[in-house]
Design a protein around this nucleic acid. Structure first.
Lengths: 333, 333
DNA sequence: GTGAAAGCGCTAACAG
DNA sequence: CTGTTAGCGCTTTCAC
């Protein structure tokens, strides 16, 4: 593959001039510049960003860390991120930690070794101290969903608002009596905000006592399935799940054991994954703009790379309630 | 971050010796080697693979091209690939083409620019000519699912066998009479093999006339849903779908329109995505080992990188029939 | 066994 | 405006 020297030779100029011309820097006459550019095209020149990065300290690579690319939520975010990065000419270095802290840590080291310029971090386990390594190596970090440190920007869904909207709907239009909340890791920001939205709204309606029980589980399909009999035992007529996977698990349990949804148990979730609308009683859930979330995170990172002095920000996306069938028919005014 | 020079200085040796020691090359006394290694650890040295790659032509980066990371099938394959690459110390450069040929092409160029050592290619659109660019730049390619060129290795599921197993089950244990096949792109290898397996098995049982109709559609949920009334009109009592998304779409249609599954229509799919077992009548489908597929592809690529002279291979994984409820109860012998 | 020197492809000073 | 020079961090001859 042709390099900058080949072009210089061909055009009878100095490599430095070629570099200037190709990078759009000033100090090159339009005549030579166009000559160089067309020559580069002719030779099929393609700059080696790695070599350039060696001196500019800009590798053109961004790290993307996700807990599990197999989870449709993370996959959508990843797609948003990589789309923006591609159009900006950046490469995406994918790190799937498989929810394991040791692997995540190993990846952090690799990312620094490869001199990534920044990283988009989706992690449920990392703590502020864990991302020190990035600051030490001068790589910008953007957190998604989980605001790990207030020294870096975070982009996330307004989980609080989403939970408020959902709860209000449950109260006003579905006439629920007893709610059981099935949440995820107690420490996680997502769990915290969604639960707070639920509780605050209940209070606002003077219905605090309607929350009969709060569970904390591994937030996936299987655990949702297993927990459901316990939920039923509480006498709750409504299950609010931390996400759609859990809700789907609960729904499957009901299906298998003849528990009618929504008449005996209403079920609501969060995220609006594809499967949510595919089941026999489509799930009422809080839609999250996952792709956009990824886009915003990448855009913010790119912005901060261009403006190194910029201060951390918090960007929140507004959620949208998707009323379907799993919590009963919506009453029309 | 400390570099090779810092270590050389600290240990009062030449940078070249440090390089030799750290890379496990011979020509360094054990004494100095261990001194250098412990010094490197002390300084938190971390080799810059990009700089090394400049001279060795080994960037340590592998490209992974997928049509849509949002699709659970591709996500699982991707996870298998990146897991293997990580343990081998390679980085994964993610390219999500979003099923667009132009984006895929743009990525091909980027991958070459970044001097990736190889690429794992999942593409439904690329032709042999499109991957010439990789050969020209000396980057190894492994195809997954779709054998684009016989100059490169391919790893794929034995789609033919899977279709044979499924068809035999349908014939012997579900007593189907009329089958409608809902396939994907006519040219795609996956479609071809699955259809061939279906036809050959029918023939083997002397039941060619049981295949009443073959449809070709965009193989996703929505198109599966829309096509179903047409399928019903053919009088078929069994729908064999090219994948689970299509099968799920068909199932939703039946649910909505009171068509009983399996008594009026039996439905079978391919892939065994998570949602397949979540619906009210769990789907009979052909399980594919997606994660393993990714692992094998990455391992083969790594192998070929180590043995540059090795000839192309074809690796097939055996599928497994998952008998669930959507084609009727399995008769016990 | 170790050091000196050259160079991978590129950019950034500094001259001219 | 353009050329010269040096150097990013590393590896690899080739001497000694």
């Amino acid at each position: 593959m042709a390099n900058i020297k080949d072009i210089a030779q061909e055009c009878k100029v100095n490599p430095a001039t070629v570099s200037r011309a190709l990078n759009g820097k000033k100090g090159v006459s339009e005549k030579v510049r166009s000559r160089i550019i067309s020559c580069a095209q002719k030779l099929g020149y393609c700059k080696n960003p790695l070599a350039a990065g060696l001196i500019t300290h800009k590798s053109g690579i961004i790290g993307l860390v996700v807990p599990d690319i197999t989870n449709p939520y993370y996959a959508s975010v990843a797609q948003g991120v990589s789309t923006v990065l591609r159009s900006a000419g950046y490469g995406t270095f994918l790190c799937d930690s498989q929810r394991r802290r040791d692997q995540e840590m190993q990846y952090f080291g690799m990312l620094c070794a490869y001199r990534v310029e920044g990283v988009v971090l989706l992690s449920v386990t990392a703590k502020a101290k864990d991302i020190e390594i990035f600051r030490a190596n001068n790589v910008r970090v953007i957190c998604v969903d989980n605001p790990i440190s207030n020294e870096v920007s975070t982009v996330l869904n307004d989980n609080y608002q989403g939970a408020c909207d959902l709860t209000e709907h449950l109260l006003r239009e579905c006439s629920v009596n007893k709610i059981a909340a099935v949440m995820g890791t107690p420490g996680a920001e997502t769990t915290r905000q969604r639960l707070r939205g639920l509780e605050d709204t209940l209070k606002r309606f003077g219905r605090e006592e309607s929350l009969v029980k709060v569970f904390n589980i591994e937030p996936d399909y299987d655990h949702g399935f297993e927990l459901t009999p316990e939920v039923l035992n509480t006498g709750a007529d409504c299950l609010v799940a931390i996400n759609d996977s859990v809700a789907l698990g609960a729904f499957s349990y009901c299906l298998k054991h003849g528990v009618d949804v929504p008449s005996r148990l209403k079920i609501a979730g969060f995220d609006d994954i594809a499967a949510a609308s595919m089941i026999s009683v489509p799930l009422t859930t809080v839609h999250q703009r996952k792709f956009v979330l990824g886009e915003k995170a990448a855009m913010q990172l790119l912005y901060e790379l261009k403006n190194p002095g910029s201060l951390p920000m918090r960007i929140e996306l507004l959620p949208k309630l998707m009323v379907r069938a799993s919590c009963g028919e919506q009453l029309k005014a």
